[in-house]
């Protein structure tokens, strides 16, 4: 049996700290097989039928456990789900058997037009009902639970009736899905909207958090931007340590999507996250 078949599809292999798989690192990963717990695949980049992207993904999948992370479901859109997109996603799931699949609690399209941005939702009863229904449809179609991720936001809707964490909790519980808690996004939104990030963490249902994300933001002066283009900053590490105390050593991923550095920079970030996990274990012991 190949390593891939042993590893993929088995959630128990997703432990510790993983890295986002990015194109500039293909060659390094394939030629040196670095010690990485798992790779998270930005699955929207592997939707086309062949060529280099799938070639490299197949090679990497032979030796590493994978999770899939998407940006295209548009779960909060007033439009119906895009079944063509989900069909290809399901095909990729069957081919690569990721331990799990995640997407975002947001909308990115309406009336068939796509903005390719993770746009926040108004925290309303209408949005709650719509997203719950969409997640149920996705989970039924894929035959598995998905994880939904909280997004950064730079605006506040007049119609919002509840805090973001309540919105997230109701949806996750009612749709019976899991949560990918992005610690950087919580921090960015808490600064932008003057919210209590710790209260956010304390309000998230512990048993639904399956993964956490860490990334770097940019300070635009008047607000923070979730750019995934920097190392994780100290306030986010602090928040992460608090999250670990609440949720335990949940599998954690380092995300870096713009101005992508050498692979060893990502490894160093992963080492920091692992160190946070070790500190927690030592404190508990």
């Amino acid at each position: 049996m190949s390593t891939r078949l042993q590893k993929n599809g088995d959630e128990s292999f997703i432990q510790g700290v993983g890295l986002g798989l990015r194109t500039p690192h293909y060659h390094f990963i394939e030629s040196t097989r670095p010690d990485v717990a798992w790779f998270e695949v930005l699955i929207d980049n592997y939707m086309q039928p062949g060529g280099s992207p799938l070639y490299h993904l197949e090679r990497i999948a032979r030796d590493y456990a994978l999770t899939f992370h998407g940006v295209g479901m548009s779960l909060g859109s007033a439009d119906p789900l895009n079944m063509d997109y989900l069909g290809i996603l399901k095909q990729r799931i069957n081919e690569f058997k990721p331990a799990w699949v995640s997407d975002h609690l947001c909308w990115s399209s309406v009336a068939g037009c796509h903005g390719h941005e993770l746009l926040p939702l108004p925290y309303t009863e209408e949005a709650v009902a719509l997203v719950i229904e969409k997640i149920r449809q996705v989970q039924d179609y894929l035959g598995q639970r998905i994880l939904i991720e909280n997004v950064s936001s730079y605006l506040t809707y007049t119609d919002s009736q509840m805090p973001e964490w309540e919105f997230l909790n109701i949806i996750a519980c009612e749709a019976d899905c899991d949560i990918l808690l992005d610690i950087n996004n919580i921090y960015v939104s808490s600064v932008n909207h003057n919210l209590d990030a710790e209260l956010y963490l304390q309000s998230v249902p512990v048993d639904r958090v399956r993964e956490m994300h860490l990334a770097g933001y940019e300070d635009a002066g008047t607000h923070l931007l979730d750019t995934h283009s920097r190392p994780v900053y100290d306030p986010v590490w602090d928040l992460y340590r608090k999250a670990l105390r609440l949720f335990g050593t949940v599998p954690t991923l380092i995300e870096w999507d713009n101005d992508i550095p050498e692979f060893d920079i990502l490894v160093a970030e992963a080492d920091k996250a692992r160190s946070c996990m070790r500190d927690l274990k030592n404190a508990v012991a």
Binding site: M47, Q48, G72, C113, H114, G115
Partner: peptide, 11 residues
């Protein structure tokens, strides 16, 4: 020219 597909790679 609106983007009509979730895959930005084919815009």
């Amino acid at each position: 020219t609106p983007s009509l597909h979730p895959d930005l790679n084919i815009y």
